[in-house]
Design a protein around this nucleic acid. Structure first.
Lengths: 342, 342
DNA sequence: CTGACTTATTAAACGCGTTTAATAAGTCAG
DNA sequence: CTGACTTATTAAACGCGTTTAATAAGTCAG
């Protein structure tokens, strides 16, 4: 076990810095008085850390406030380019990555063939090279099509090189950059929550129907659900009809007369009703390229035949790719914001 | 908004006391050195608080350790009767309550007719009277057959006197005893986790089949799931067959030939498979008076026809009444342990 | 039964965030 | 343009947990 003997005072210091950073990023600009009001630390404490951060170039003075009857207050702004993050999407067919700053602006985008079947060193080199040309990169967030817990990839069918690899530790040990690894659908869930600014204690399911079978990312009480064997969200197996589970109902042969989309709507509605009965989440999100907005109403109506209407979640469509990106960036930003002051 | 301007130092102090109490209750007896090893506070700090607690009678010296080569260490024990808790079960047909100490020993049991249809003052008087004869009672935990959030009863069909009542605030304001209110099934979930000493990040469902329809308490990542409209766990609505949901499958007419328990087993197995596909929990618990142990194996086997076996949760039976009690006691103990020192 | 050695406990000095007092830098009426 | 009044900032004193040094209370070989 590593020496995690972090003194309470050290911990407190880190927490103060972290909270100043997030407050400044959220507010855009703030005075010392506003920060100590919001963060419940004393003026001298805020003042001390803000001075250090200004000296390091992490915050800048953006001007003086108008006087409200007395001495004019100094207004501070966070320097969004002080540190950068790198988000990497490892996919079957390609590898995308972005370099972004603390307010989510993308500085650079990159695209490569898939490296999932190659040795991990390929990925390490990619990061190392980008870090060389851009030394401000201080966090890496990697999305993978597999089950991840605490940075270790427990299950990633078809890619032996990554199976059972602690990718987080691997990169942190070799490159000394704080790293986070997350499953793709879970990152999308995090991205959606970030984007909609959903507070904690929100529950939602993000459903991806897919060509090769559906999958879902789920958050309960604001936290990602992983499950005992990383099987959570594998909704394809849910028994829905006498002889068909969800994937069979979605794709199977139904011998006949009904409209092609009717049985799909019923299957999805049954899933919505099931999730509602179990988790009663606030939202269920579908991929906008998989589901015509008109179908949402049909699904809502049909779900209400199974479950009292007032308990149904809000149904919405969203851009999975975009949420995935925002999720990874948000995870990476969390690392940036927690880092020690230089 | 109340004056929640609690100084960081005050907060830290409370946290130190809380952690000493839980450590001492968990360990039974401990030396100062063991406590500061475990809790990561310095020796002088532990020493100071332990002295205060000893003066107050909250901890006692249980003797000296054998020497391990030097001065013999003093071993301290928590006084389990220093403070007591009261757990109250409000039910349709009766009202039960227990008074218990910090190690869960029941000091007194009481039984009354149901008071759910009476005015809340009946409940307040009950607590007040017990508190008079036993002033050591410093926490109240109340279990109700309804949906609760932060002490407020949002939904309790059939009992208007309690509907939309903030029972926690009501009792705390009138009697100045820290109070917690929780739903019955959720309390059972908490009780089961406490009893089995399950760490955080565990997920489980506690299923009650019931005479008037099934219901479930669910914990995900160690936290109770309440849902957007307190509807979570209402598994009776889950569509399971072409024309039957869970409650219909459990109770309905199946026209004939199959054994009475066969369709029940299939319906429950489908529920197990569904929960597994969505949450992949570690445990699903049934009530031991509702399900013969032999059925568990049948359910496990049948579930495996819907979902790969390795992902199934551990299925177990337990005593609901007992778990409910332990859950309430555990919640009340949490209050006791968080209280300020006298 | 003494002195070298352990280990537990107490006492003094320190570090750091908070509280409170002092100072700096504005506004505005007359 | 001065003085009463605001508001922001800085400086000094304080509180409390930690670190480090000193002391207390044992063991054990010879």
């Amino acid at each position: 076990m590593a020496s995690d003997k972090r003194l309470p005072s050290q911990q407190l210091k880190s927490e103060i810095i972290r909270s100043i950073r997030t407050a400044l990023l959220e507010l855009g600009r703030a005075t010392k008085a506003e920060l100590c009001q919001r963060l419940q630390y004393s003026f001298p404490t805020i003042s001390k850390f803000l001075m250090q951060m200004e000296e390091a170039g992490e915050v800048t003075i953006s001007g003086l406030d108008e006087s409200s009857g007395g001495r004019r207050a100094i207004r501070y702004a966070y320097n969004p380019n002080y540190r950068l993050g790198m988000a990497i999407f490892l996919e079957k067919n390609e590898t995308n990555y972005t370099i972004y700053n603390c307010i989510g602006e993308v500085i650079k985008e990159g695209n490569l063939p898939s490296i999932l079947e190659e040795d991990v060193s390929t990925l390490v080199s990619l990061i190392e090279d980008e870090k060389k040309t851009n030394p401000k990169i201080q966090s890496v967030a990697i999305g993978v099509p597999g089950a991840v817990k605490h940075g270790k990839i427990f299950l990633i069918p078809g890619y032996e090189k990554y199976q059972n690899l602690n990718l987080k530790r691997c990169i942190e040990d070799q490159l000394s950059i704080p790293t986070i690894v997350e499953n793709d659908m879970n990152a999308a869930v995090i991205g959606y929550m970030t984007q909609k600014n959903l507070k904690e204690n929100i529950s939602l399911m993000y459903l991806y129907l897919g060509k090769n079978g559906p999958g879902a990312g789920i958050a309960v009480n604001g936290e990602i659900v992983r499950g005992k064997t990383f099987f959570s969200g594998e909704v394809q197996f849910i028994p829905q009809y006498d002889n068909r589970n969800f994937i069979e109902a979605l794709t199977g042969d139904h011998g006949g007369s009904s409209m092609q989309s009717d049985y799909k709507v019923d299957a999805i509605s049954r899933l919505v009703a099931t999730i509602t009965s179990i988790l009663n989440p606030h939202y269920i999100i579908f991929c906008e390229d998989e589901l015509a907005p008109a179908l949402l109403n049909q699904i809502a109506e049909c779900s209400a035949t199974y479950v009292p209407k007032e308990h149904l979640p809000e149904l919405a469509v969203s851009d999975l790719k975009c949420d995935y990106l925002i999720g990874l960036q948000s995870l990476g930003l969390g690392l940036l914001v927690s880092q020690q002051i230089d």
